[in-house]
């Protein structure tokens, strides 16, 4: 069963200097109980897609031009204000990339956590406190840190607190937007294990966004690769890691330092991502792609199905 289906989503942002094409025909589905990973270049629209799924588009000025976002069959884009309030936090929630955007500097962590828990669950203050302490301790945040104000905590502690806040509300769909960037590897492993455990225990679907390919491979069953507002390849973890088809996916893995050893220089992908001001006629990666032909630049590639789970948007594969 799919808990979420994003279908041909096209979203734009109206800015001072014109329309930006932020999300360009994105489709994917997330099953109940599954951990779905999204990787892709910085600025390709991962956070924007997440905000759309949570129904925050209007708030950030993002306009869905076409497509649907079906949460249990209901279109999030058509939710009333009232329905949206129920949905946010309780049914679907996001662990934000920047923890300070989720916290109020004027209140202690404890006050904010208890408030959040009680907003979404009918529990007494005492019970809420218990849930809070349990979740915080399982993430190695010492109890006394809960009495602190946000500025008194380290970067990694804030990140764990924000994660704990979302997890303690037990939503059905969690989007984790780079939730472990400020954590040392030891605590990161602990966090990931907890996330996985809660996901199994409460049958939560998880969308996990990260630049850390190692983390993605540990967490996710299926993975989507995004580039300039499009999903260029989707597949199971093994499909992608052992048989990447799209030239961007291949380049990304080639640039990844998989063995963790230290070298003289880093590999990079030459060139820069396209400008989002113009609608891209062809494949967004064409300009940087060593295999690109004229056809790649002038027209959109079809989605090619490699197997039931593995799909790729690339002419070269289609022509094979």
């Amino acid at each position: 069963m799919n808990i979420l289906e994003v279908k041909n989503l096209v979203s734009q942002l109206n800015t001072e200097d014109g329309v930006l094409h932020i999300i360009n025909d994105v489709s994917f589905a997330v099953k109940e109980d599954e951990c779905f990973g999204i990787i892709g270049e910085s600025g390709c629209g991962k956070t924007m897609t997440s905000m759309s799924i949570l129904g925050y588009s209007d708030r950030i000025g993002l306009k869905a031009v076409s497509g649907e976002i079906l949460f249990k069959g209901e279109d999030v884009l058509k939710f009333s204000k009232k329905r949206l309030r129920e949905y946010n936090g309780k049914e679907a929630a996001i662990i934000l990339q920047d923890p300070m955007q989720a916290l109020d500097p004027l209140f202690t962590i404890k006050d904010q956590m208890i408030e959040t828990i009680r907003r979404h669950q009918k529990v007494s203050k005492k019970e809420a406190e218990k849930i809070m302490i349990e979740t915080a301790e399982s993430l190695s945040v010492a109890k006394e840190k809960l009495n602190c104000y946000p500025h008194q905590l380290s970067g990694g502690m804030l990140q764990r607190i924000v994660g704990a806040m979302v997890l303690s509300c037990r939503p059905k769909l969690i989007i984790a937007d780079e939730p472990t960037t400020a954590l040392d590897v030891t605590i990161q492993l602990q966090y990931l294990k907890l996330l996985k455990r809660l996901q199994k225990e409460y049958h939560t679907a998880l969308i996990f966004i990260s630049h850390d390919i190692k983390v993605i491979s540990m967490m996710c069953d299926r993975i989507a690769v995004m580039y300039a507002g499009e999903i260029v390849e989707t597949g199971t973890r093994d499909d992608l890691f052992y048989h990447p088809k799209h030239p961007y996916t291949q380049a990304l893995f080639k640039a990844t330092n998989i063995d963790g050893n230290i070298r003289e220089r880093y590999e990079t992908i030459d060139g820069a991502p396209p400008n989002l001001k113009e609608e891209i006629a062809g494949c967004p990666f064409a300009e940087r792609c060593q295999y690109a032909t004229d056809a790649c630049i002038s027209g959109k590639p079809e989605v090619v199905k490699i197997n039931d789970e593995h799909t790729v948007k690339c002419r070269r594969i289609a022509d094979e």
Partner: peptide, 18 residues
Amino acid sequence: LDEPVSALDVSVRGQIMN
């Protein structure tokens, strides 16, 4: 530089480190 490349994809991260 306090975690200066934590939010970057591997290609941009490499570019910044170089």
